[in-house]
Amino acid sequence: METVIFTIYALAACGGAIAVMVSQNVVRMAFWLVISLGSVAGLFFLLHADFLGATQLLIYVGGTVVLLIFGVMLTASGPMLTIRSGPGEVVLGGLVGLAVLGMLVFGMLSVDWESQQTRMYSAAAEEGRGERSMGYNPEGEGNTARRLGAALLGVRFDRDLGRNSETLSTGYLLPFEIVSVHLLVVLVGASYLARTKRRRPNPLEESLES
């Protein structure tokens, strides 16, 4: 069952990505991007990362792509909609892409992942097998919102439970704060960059010139 669902999502994700690469119309590219990113969100859910799946949907599909389409609407007028790249570039890009893909796939197939494969939360899943957690998910897997929130606040349930206080891991409080300040800066900076500059004749300059 999981394999079937994975195949559907994986095909949609790869197909969407390839269609983004191939298609020439910007708005269609955005549509295929949505298909691809949405399927990646589905893969996240399949990997028991439900908070990240929801985040992916909310931020990428609902936020970033809408923003991109908005940008397309503001900038695309007639000829700009389909700017074709030269055939030489396409062939070269395709060749380089195929080479990189071959290298990556070769690299990852030559590593024996199975030997170091450990299931996340395996200990936790055994612990909680008998009881049903607050949600109705059959296993203790998948409900990562609380763990992730706690990790961002600097508390690591997956590492620190049962440890003594000297060996606690650090969590992600500092990066979290840095990212939030960064977001604020980006917000201000982007709105400063994107504002429309009115070419109003400056009365001061005119009086100086005359």
Partner: peptide
């Protein structure tokens, strides 16, 4: 990897 390469080519 497929996503990555498509992105690079894009």
């Amino acid at each position: 990897a497929v996503l990555f390469v498509c992105g690079i080519v894009c």
